[in-house]
Design a protein around this nucleic acid. Structure first.
Length: 272
DNA sequence: GTATGTACCTGCGGGC
DNA sequence: TGCCCGCAGGTACATA
């Protein structure tokens, strides 16, 4: 599932291979891919525009265009962005194609579960105003402390809340909490200063390692990079999808439960 | 303001 | 072998 490290990997690839180019043909075929505005309007507004840069806030991918607008993409559960030669066979569930000037590859949006979406918005990105600081490059210890204070939910629920910090999803939340030795149901009011510092440090460590490893590709292989290559961050996973396997830190077996409807993996012994 | 539950959707795996 | 059902999960929205 694309979370911050996966989206950042895609962003870096787009910035390297596509930024600076003009879009000469935009075609959307997915019924649900563009749902915040008219599909034809979306195609017309993108065609002829030059992408100045690719940015990312949380799990949102932002293409800054030369007319001041922004082309937004969220991959949600199963969305993929792929660069392929225009003549290459279309993968099943290909919902959009974008051809660029002077490029031998086109960008394709593939999304089996169709939760992913694209839209166009103003440069101020009003749809993202509710997001907390980006977990990779904006979050500070003071801001994390402030945004957790007065909240009474468990840490997992709060870390999944994009208004606390943007970018963490189900996989990396579990990994962060394991790294910090904190249980999913600990409440902010119970945290000592050193616990909060451990949590903050763990967010940085886990996300940086995952970005360096170019994201996580799990068994279902929902995520691959722009050229279809798998990431390697799953090699560093300590708890996610490891139910019944020994904790690498203490040897106890990794347990699984449900939190906010999400599968949650943790060590019952060394996460307190 | 905060917390919780649900809908959206398709592919896959387990059970029969 | 084939069918059916439940599960997986990010976000927006409704409800408490």
């Amino acid at each position: 599932m694309p979370e911050l490290p996966e989206v950042e990997t895609v962003r870096r690839g787009l910035q390297e291979h596509v930024a600076g180019r003009r879009m000469v043909d935009v075609r959307v075929t997915g019924r649900r891919t563009v749902r915040r505005l008219d599909q034809t309007d979306f195609e017309i507004r993108l065609t002829g525009r030059r992408v100045e840069s690719f940015e990312r806030i949380g799990k949102f991918l932002i293409a800054r265009l030369d007319d001041g607008s922004a082309w937004m993409t969220h991959l949600r559960m199963s969305g993929q962005l792929l660069l392929r030669p225009p003549t290459a066979e279309l993968a099943k569930h290909t919902h959009a194609r974008v051809q660029f000037e002077d490029s031998d590859v086109e960008l394709r949006f593939v999304d089996p579960r169709t939760f992913g979406e694209m839209w166009i918005t103003s440069s101020e990105l009003p749809e993202l105003s509710h997001l907390g600081p980006d977990a990779y490059d904006e979050l500070t210890l003071e801001e994390l402390s402030e945004r957790l204070s007065r909240r009474k939910s468990g840490l997992k629920t709060l870390l999944l809340d994009q208004s606390v910090t943007a970018g963490l999803g189900n996989i990396y939340t579990d990994e962060v909490l394991w790294q910090a030795r904190l249980r999913f149901d600990r409440q902010p009011a119970q945290l000592r200063d050193e616990d909060l510092l451990a949590l903050f440090d763990s967010i940085r460590v886990v996300l940086r390692r995952a970005v360096e490893a170019r994201g996580s590709t799990l068994v279902d292989a929902q995520y691959v990079d722009l050229f279809g290559k798998a990431g390697e961050a799953q090699l560093y996973h300590q708890v996610y999808d490891r139910r019944g396997k020994p904790c690498s830190r203490c040897g106890a077996l990794i347990a699984r439960t449900k939190v906010s409807g999400r599968s949650t993996y943790f060590c019952e012994n060394c996460q307190i």
